[in-house]
Design a protein around this nucleic acid. Structure first.
Lengths: 236, 236
DNA sequence: CTATATATTTTGACTAGCCAAAGTGTCAAG
DNA sequence: CTTGACACTTTGGCTAGTCAAAATATATAG
């Protein structure tokens, strides 16, 4: 019933890496469609397990109090489950930033690395990393880093597809951690913090062309462009 | 039969943390009594498992080619097993040094931390850490760090109990990673690299008193003193 | 209101690790 | 040469996590 580990492989006192991964997954799926229950199919797909496995795990997490599981309906995190998930997300994102800033890895590769490290890292080590990075609030992809108490800083961001042609905006967040996609962006000088101009936005061609202040330029299809969130200095 | 992981919890392509721990354990036990086979009892004690579990694991590792297992005799690492063990040791020790030097943890606490991290860290991350640390050859306890190819630098070290009174030697290695012991040494300014003078060595009292160049001083019983290896500039 | 498609749940089975306890070698002392 | 003592191995059984396939709901189309 979701016991804490005694410390072989995972950091001591933690839930098993498996359980942690399900909680993280559920949190992320919940973000995609806020309010609604997450079905077993989605969990199974996201976790790359069979539907039966997802059902079994949700039942178990239900008994442990981490999720509310409605048979044939779906599940969502309880308050307790959400708190756990935010801690895991915090570790994941701090580790990602650490890998980029301190160890100099490319932002396209840190997601995978962080997936293993997030389970092994102790609170003490995490605290040191946090300090070393100067208590950051966003990771290399612009995703917010929950505070130690699990609070998340909200930013008002606009989807790139909602920006009119000619708009000058700042790239704030990339909602796709696929290595190839991030490499593409990086090659054209696009990363959170960069200022870009929407030089062309053509609904019929289904494409948006971006010119970055640092010289790069790319054209993205709408489905790729929706992955990018930007910050406008103010007005619509 | 000792498969490589696909990457849930442990770093991808690695043996399971459990298997890695047995290999590391076997390596360490072999170091204690070079040449002889390691009995199941010792493995069971070191791994904190029942004897039956040790037997089962040694059989399995035998089939995988990592150890030579002689029923009712004991086991020892094969060439392949030794190579694996040295990689694990390399990760463990580089992580320890990293935790001390970059994250500023105390040397008494890094052993436990490294025990979880050593399984989660990828080759790429390890390479960056190695570089960041300047390709070090010893960890915070003075234990040698195997090279990427698994070579270990040999140093001629003397046991502290073999030093005559008045000898001025350099502390090189501490063969006990117990937090309390390391804290004690640290509190008296004793750590690898420090020069110390054997101010008193009394076989009858079973005690050795050390004065460190940086002011500290401690008296250790023989059983504690054997844990310390020192370097003499030359002559006996 | 039925029939079918789809999502979900159940069932039976498997692997890696582990334990307790019963069984079996081995060796030294008598 | 026999007898313990002790170390080791075997056996049966447990949990976490997984899958495949059968059983069951649910929703939607007709």
């Amino acid at each position: 019933m979701a016991k804490r580990t005694k410390g072989e492989g995972d950091a001591p006192g933690r839930l098993s890496s498996t359980v942690e991964n399900y909680l993280k997954c559920l949190y992320e799926e919940q973000q995609k469609c806020p309010g609604e229950l997450v079905g077993m199919g989605r969990i199974a797909t996201a976790m790359q397990v069979s539907p039966g496995t997802a059902t079994a795990m949700m039942k178990m997490l239900g008994n442990s109090g981490f999720v509310d599981y409605e048979p044939r309906g779906g599940s969502h995190l309880t308050k307790e489950g959400q708190e756990e998930a935010l801690q895991i997300l915090r570790r994941h994102r701090l580790v990602e930033l650490f890998l980029v800033r301190i160890l100099g890895l490319d932002w396209s590769e840190v997601h995978t690395e962080a997936d293993s490290l997030e389970h092994a890292i102790s609170d003490k080590v995490l605290a040191r990393i946090d300090e070393l990075l100067g208590f950051p609030t966003v990771d290399p992809h612009g995703d917010p880093i929950p505070s130690p108490s699990g609070r998340i800083e909200h930013r008002v961001l606009t989807n790139l597809t909602d920006c009119r042609q000619g708009a000058r905006v700042r790239l704030a967040r990339v909602m796709d951690e696929t290595a190839a996609f991030l490499q593409l962006l990086g090659q054209h000088g696009l990363q959170p913090g960069e200022w870009v101009t929407v030089s062309e936005s053509n609904e019929i061609a289904d494409a948006i062309t971006l010119v970055s202040d640092n010289g790069g330029s790319v054209t993205l299809g709408t489905s790729a462009a929706t992955k990018l969130l930007v910050e406008r200095d103010d007005e619509a």
